[in-house]
Simulated assay, not measured.
Amino acid sequence: MSLYTAVATSSGRDQRAVSSDGQLDVKLGMQKELGGDGVGTNPEQLFAAGYAACFASAMRLVAKQQNVDAGDASVTAEVSLNANGQGGFTLAVTLRVELPDHLSGEAGRALLDATHQVCPYSNATRGNIPVELVVE
Rank of each mutant, 00 (worst) to 15 (best):
L91T: 14
D113Q: 14
L34G: 03
A107G: 00
D21W: 02
G35V: 01
L81A: 11
R126H: 05
A58S: 15
N128Q: 15
N84Q: 02
P130T: 04
V97K: 07
G22N: 15
S57F: 01
G40H: 06
V39K: 05
S20K: 12
N128V: 06
A107D: 04
V68E: 03
H116V: 04
L91G: 13
L99M: 06
R13T: 07
T125F: 05
V93I: 11
R126Q: 12
S19W: 00
I129K: 03
R96P: 04
Q86D: 15
Q23H: 08
D14W: 10
F47T: 13
L95W: 09
M30F: 00
D69C: 00
R13A: 09
S2G: 02
V79Q: 12
V135G: 05
G87Y: 06
G85I: 08
A17W: 03
K27T: 09
V79A: 12
V7Q: 10
Q15L: 07
E33H: 04
S80R: 14
A53D: 10
Q23M: 10
S19V: 13
A107L: 11
H102W: 00
L112E: 05
T41D: 06
G29S: 02
V131N: 06
N82Q: 10
L103V: 14
L91N: 08
Y121F: 15
F47S: 04
T76L: 13
